[in-house]
Amino acid sequence: MTNPVMNFLALALYFIAGGLLGQRLLRGQVVTGGAKIGIFSLGLGAVVLHAALLYSSLWTAAGINLALTPAFSLIAWVVAILYLATSLIRPVDNLGILILPIAGLTLLVEWLWPGHMSLTLTSSVSAAHIIISVLAYSLLCLAAVQSLMLLMQERHLHGKHPGGFIRALPPMQTMEGVMFQMIGLGFILLTFTLISGVFFSETTSGQPLRFTHHMVLAVLAWIVYAILLVGRWRLGWRGRPAIHWTLGGFALLLLAYFGSKFVLEVLLHRG
Rank of each mutant, 00 (worst) to 15 (best):
V48E: 00
L119K: 12
L53W: 03
W59E: 06
L44T: 14
A80E: 01
F40P: 01
A51G: 12
I102M: 09
A85M: 12
G45A: 05
D93W: 13
L54A: 12
V92S: 06
W111F: 15
V30H: 11
W77P: 03
A35Y: 10
G63A: 09
L119W: 05
S118W: 02
L107D: 02
L53Y: 03
A67N: 02
L88V: 12
L95V: 02
L95G: 06
A62T: 12
V125A: 10
P70C: 10
H129N: 08
N94P: 00
R90H: 10
H116T: 14
V109P: 01
H116Y: 15
G104M: 03
P70E: 01
L112N: 03
T106I: 08
V30M: 06
H50L: 09
V109M: 07
G43R: 08
H129R: 11
N65A: 13
S124T: 15
S41Q: 06
L100A: 06
S73G: 08
L66H: 06
Q29G: 04
S118C: 00
T120C: 00
A61H: 12
L98R: 08
I75Q: 04
W59L: 15
A51C: 10
L68S: 04
L107E: 05
L68E: 01
L74M: 12
S126W: 07
T86A: 14
F40I: 04
A76S: 13
A35N: 13
L112W: 08
R27Q: 15
L68T: 11
D93V: 10
A52P: 00
Y55P: 00
V31G: 05
L58Q: 08
S124P: 00
I97K: 06
V125N: 03
W59M: 13
T69K: 02
I39P: 03
L58V: 14
A67K: 04
S56Q: 15
I99N: 04
G43M: 05
L58W: 07
V30K: 15
L66S: 05
T106Y: 04
S126G: 13
L84K: 05
L112H: 07
